[in-house]
């Protein structure tokens, strides 16, 4: 996993968020303030620009640039949360990047989100997608799986985690003001986390295809 891998991941995440912007906004309109899709799209578009303006020379640098840009440009809660996650991940990532190193750095990112948002699993937040993804990565490392297989499992875990937020009652964030009315809706932050993990699995497919070629 070189710098190009991480830049491609962030760019593909930006594309997936753009394509799903309206769905994220609809999810947020149900239980929040209907700005999650637009905010994240703006933030990740700025991330792509920043990666072009200041081409990173190491994987950690790509993540730090993304994190700082998201903190400064998003304007909603997802900016500080995703921004802190990418920054914590960047700070923890050692070059050259191995799967165990990636899994440990990803976990550091999830811990940063938990600390900043003071959210726990079951609160109906992005943690409900990110924590299962982190556990899937750790389990894949223990089993000695390939990065492709590990990222695929992490993406599936995030997707399942996001769908599992539907029956939950929100205990953090704007949706928590709705109480029982938050039940029955997928959490937009968990949904966008699943998109970002989906992009990671997608990039791993591209890399694996290159190796086969």
């Amino acid at each position: 996993m070189d710098t190009g891998f991480f830049v491609t991941w962030l760019r593909d995440a930006a594309t997936r968020i753009r394509l799903q912007r309206d769905r994220l906004t609809e999810l947020d309109a149900a239980i929040g303030d209907a700005d999650h899709g637009a905010n994240l799209d703006r933030g990740f578009t700025e991330v792509c620009k920043a990666l072009e303006d200041w081409p990173p020379t190491a994987p950690a640098q790509a993540l730090l640039t993304a994190g700082t840009t998201l903190i400064r440009r998003v304007g909603g809660a997802s900016g500080p949360l995703y921004g802190s996650a990418f920054r914590a991940m960047g700070k923890a990532l050692q070059d050259p990047v191995t799967l165990p190193g990636f899994a440990a750095a990803f976990e550091a990112g999830v811990v940063a989100v938990e600390r900043l948002g003071k959210a726990a699993p079951g609160d109906k937040t992005m943690i409900d997608a990110l924590a299962p993804a982190s556990r899937a990565l750790t389990a894949a490392v223990e089993k000695g799986l390939t990065p492709y297989e590990a990222f695929h499992r992490a993406a599936v875990a995030a997707e399942e985690g996001s769908r599992a937020t539907i029956p939950m009652r929100a205990r953090k964030g704007r949706a928590s003001y709705l109480g029982e009315r938050s039940v029955g809706h997928e959490d937009p932050g968990a949904a966008s986390s699943a998109l970002i993990l989906g992009a990671l699995a997608g990039v791993a497919v591209k890399e694996a295809t290159k190796e086969v070629d």
Binding site: I71, G75, G76, A77, G79, P80, S84, L116, G117, R174
Partner: peptide
């Protein structure tokens, strides 16, 4: 006040 204001302040 709420949500992202709190998170931004904490940063």
């Amino acid at each position: 006040d709420l949500g992202s204001s709190v998170l931004t302040a904490r940063l």
